[in-house]
């Protein structure tokens, strides 16, 4: 029953779920969950432009999507820092406007006489059936260095999430850490687009992290658990959509992860996140 099509989708789903689950921990701890959503929507014009320039090259699509995502984040930060506007309204506006620009470009592309652009809208909703071995290779090629960065820079990332003052006192470039982390998140979002789609990709970052947060205390354990939840969500989602008819892979994975998060919120024992002052 394990055929090669299922194998490709399952491996890709596990990798996407695992990596985004781990990286999402940073977003959730920094209270920036919605930034993932903004990045995911902002990737669309990048996908369209990279298609216009380079055709349907999976590597260039990932690069274009990541660059657009980073530009989106940069604009959000820039506008928030130079105006009285709150981050939430700026993010909402940016994600919708970037998505609108993407729609304009996509409708423009669809009128071009070249063929083979049909698959582009799958970046919005995701289409697991279109995932091929090349995508898995890309996931590994990008995922391994990302993992290395997280492991090597662990003390800094850890401090960055909890103790911003420490990072600055130590003279570490908090700004650079921020950019690198956002870059990693943009890349995994770009990698997940073909399977999960722009609209739901952010949930794969947030849901496993929120779920893991309910069970463990330390950030390292949270990251490992979030990765496991994301990866199992990917595997089970891929299995369900392969076994039953008309079950969309991406939304199923997301739905499973959200359910795990909600159930964890209800049944997990309250983990004390800070030392409670004892009596007297």
């Amino acid at each position: 029953m394990i055929d090669s099509v299922f194998l490709v989708i399952a491996v890709a789903a596990i990798l996407i779920g695992g990596i985004s689950g781990a990286l999402g921990v940073v977003l959730v701890l920094r209270k920036r969950s919605l930034l993932g959503d903004a990045i995911a929507h902002a990737t669309l014009p990048g996908v369209a432009l990279s298609y216009l320039l380079f055709g349907k090259d999976p590597l260039m699509l990932v690069v274009g999507a990541s660059i657009a995502g980073i530009i989106g984040v940069a604009l959000v930060v820039l506008i928030t820092n130079t105006t009285r506007l709150r981050t939430d309204v700026v993010m909402g506006m940016m994600l919708a406007v970037f998505f609108g620009v993407g729609m304009v470009l996509l409708t423009y592309i669809q009128k071009l006489p070249t063929t083979g652009q049909a698959g582009l809208t799958s970046f919005i909703f995701g289409q697991a059936a279109a995932v091929v071995w090349d995508d898995v290779v890309l996931l590994i090629a990008f995922g391994a260095p990302m993992l290395a960065v997280v492991v090597l820079a662990w003390p800094i990332i850890h401090a960055f999430c909890f103790d911003h003052a420490w990072v600055e006192v130590r003279g570490l470039p908090a700004f650079v850490v921020d950019i690198v982390l956002m870059l990693l998140i943009s890349v995994i979002i770009a990698l997940g687009l073909p399977m999960v789609g722009a609209l739901l990709m952010s949930a794969l970052l947030v849901a496993p992290a929120v779920a893991a947060r309910q069970w463990v205390k330390s950030m390292s354990a949270m990251m490992v658990l979030a990765a496991i939840i994301g990866a199992s969500g990917g595997l089970v989602g891929a299995y369900l959509s392969a076994t039953f008819e008309r079950v969309p892979t991406g939304p199923t994975i997301v739905f499973l992860c959200v359910m795990v998060a909600l159930i964890s919120l209800v049944i997990a024992p309250r983990v004390r996140t800070h030392v409670r002052r004892g009596p007297a």
Binding site: V28, V206, P248, G250, A261
Partner: peptide, 26 residues
């Protein structure tokens, strides 16, 4: 339940939206 506002919004809409898409596809 101590989930920050942004994570809560991200979680809820993703859950409802993905469920809606699953229903539509079914």
């Amino acid at each position: 339940r101590n989930v920050s506002a942004d994570a809560a919004i991200g979680l809820v809409f993703a859950g409802m939206f993905s469920f809606a898409i699953i229903l539509i596809t079914q």
